[in-house]
Structure formats: C-alpha cells, structure tokens
Computed example of a mutant assay.
Amino acid sequence: MTRRLFTGLAALCSAILCGLAGIPPAAAEEQAFRIGIAPHTSARVIIEQYQPVRRAVEAALGRPVEIVTAPDFTAFARRAVDQDYDIAVTTGHQAQLLREDAGYLPLLTYKSDFRAVVVTAAKGPYRTAASLAGTTVLGLSPSSLVTLWGQHWLADGKLPDIQLRYVSAADSVAQLILAGDASAGFMSRANRAKLAPEVQAQLSTIAESGPMAGRVYMLNGKASALAEPLRKALFAFGETAEGKSYFDVNQLGGYRPVTDEELAAMEPLADEVRRVLKAGK
C-alpha cells in the first residue's frame, strides 16, 4: 500500500512538473517583441541607433522590446522569411519580398531619400567608372539593395574583370578602400554620412543612384492586430523631442506612409533576393 501510494505521488509530481515546464514563458516573463534591423552597419551601432525606437514601441505595447540584427543582408532576409522578427526594418526590395512571400505588412518608411553611392579613396587613382576595370570592388552582401544596384551599375558600364567582394558593413567598406585593399565600394548615402568626419573627408563619391524605397518597417502578419496601434505610436514618437532628435542625428527626415506602388516597383530586385536565398548563398 505504502509503495503504491509513493508511486502514485511520484507520478502526480512528475505530471505537475511537466505541466509547469509547458507553461509559456509569458506566465513568468513576457517574451520580448523582436525588431529586426537589416545589417547596414555594425551590430553595435544598429542597437545604439534604434534605442529611441525600441523605447517608443515598448511604451506602446507595454511589453519588453529588443533590437536584433543578422550577420549580413542574406541572413537577415532568410531569418525574416522564417518569421524570426515581429517587425523587420529593411530596404524596399526585401520589404517587397517579405510582403509577397512571408506575409509581412508595411507600416511606414522614412521621408529622406534612400540612394546608393559608389565611393573611392579621394586621393587614389580611381576617379571614374572606367578606372575600376580589373580591380576589386566591395559590396555588403549579394542581397543588399546597394550591392544589387551597384552590380547593375557595373554591368551597365561593361567594366571588365571586376572582382566583387562582400563585407559586413559600410564602415568596413570605407576602411578597406582607404587601406588600398579595394578600388571602390557600394554603400547607402545615409551610411556614408554616418561615417566619422575624418573618414568621410578621405572618400570621393563617383556615382549615385536615383531615389529608391529605403528602410521600410514591415510587421509580421501574425501580429496584424497591432498594425494600426504601432503605426500611430511610431508617428506619435516622431513628433516628440526624442523622435525629432533621432531623425536629425540619423538624417532620416521623419516617418511617412509607404505605398504599395513603391514596393511593387522593387519586385525585380526582390526576385534577385529570392534567387540568392534559393542558391543558399
């Protein structure tokens, strides 16, 4: 009898412990809302730069919010497609991919134009597109918008024997060019402006794209009920002193709605990202 009672109690305790293990973490500590930022610069800079946005979203949701990124644009796209982010902030071509292929919803974008630039060392020998023939040129990853634009720019110029090398961030592009390890590199105009003044002074811009759909806030479709509250909260943040300072420091101009038409215009480049993901690069 005693043995049966002990066995029954042990089984009951085991069941209770298993049940406790199955309780969602929210019962003790709510899971953080994840805002994924495409890796346009180093992770340290991204996390620091987006703290005002994190605080605004955290206040609106009343739950913890964390800023995360990825090693490169391809990894970021793959993680976003795999639903790793509650909000993904990425350039228009990946935003279009996430809208069409992964059920994300566009929230808003920035007012400032997004443009890609080709930079070289100001005191170096590479002053024109033709001078880049037979050299190494740097991009951010096979699926970044500035790299895809740059590759088309190189192809349009019919420049022979270009070796394209991928690096992690815009500041790395600048460092390698100034060290003489590459002739030129692609980055966004905004990231060029974020480089240290002494680094900017040593760079020359030899080509610039037209305006393209820049960083777009895309909401995971599983959180669609939050679309309007988050949109309103972010626009309200933009009117605060902290929001205005955030826009000024990062030269973003404020928030604005993003249209279906400007995302649809990015479909050809979104398709290039699909090919990169399919190839497993």
Rank of each mutant, 00 (worst) to 15 (best):
T109H: 08
Q202W: 02
A213N: 10
G36H: 07
G243K: 03
A190K: 11
Y50F: 14
A182K: 12
V146E: 07
Y166R: 02
M266R: 10
I67F: 06
T69N: 03
G62A: 11
G157N: 15
W153Y: 15
P257N: 11
K158E: 12
Q96R: 14
E262C: 07
R274K: 14
M1A: 13
F235V: 04
R256V: 15
P64K: 04
A60M: 06
A207V: 05
V276E: 12
R3Y: 07
V173G: 04
L97C: 09
F114E: 04
K232I: 03
M187C: 01
A207D: 14
E30I: 13
M1E: 11
I206E: 06
S168G: 04
F237I: 00
D86Q: 01
A264D: 10
D82Y: 10
R79E: 12
S168W: 00
L17S: 13
Q202Y: 06
M187Q: 00
S168L: 04
R78C: 07
T109F: 08
E228T: 11
L230G: 01
E58M: 09
G210E: 15
Y246T: 04
A80H: 12
W149F: 15
G62W: 04
M218W: 10
R231D: 06
E100A: 02
R165F: 07
Q163S: 12
Y50G: 02
D156F: 11
R78W: 09
G103L: 10
P24T: 11
L234F: 02
R256P: 03
A122S: 04
A70V: 14
G36K: 02
L252S: 05
I46C: 12
V117A: 05
W149S: 14
A88T: 04
Q83S: 11
F247I: 06
L230F: 01
K222I: 01
S112P: 10
M212D: 11
A38S: 15
R274G: 06
D171V: 01
A133S: 14
A223P: 03
D101M: 11
E198V: 12
V119Y: 11
M212S: 14
G238E: 02
W149N: 12
P39R: 05
L61Y: 02
A225E: 05
G103R: 10
Q251G: 06
L203G: 13
A213Y: 03
Q83P: 05
S168F: 06
G221I: 09
G238S: 08
M212R: 15
A213P: 08
Q202I: 00
V117M: 08
P197Y: 02
L108N: 08
K278G: 06
C18A: 15
V68Q: 01
L234W: 00
A21V: 12
G280Y: 02
G180P: 13
S172Q: 05
A169R: 08
V216Y: 03
A241F: 00
T90F: 04
S141L: 03
I35Q: 00
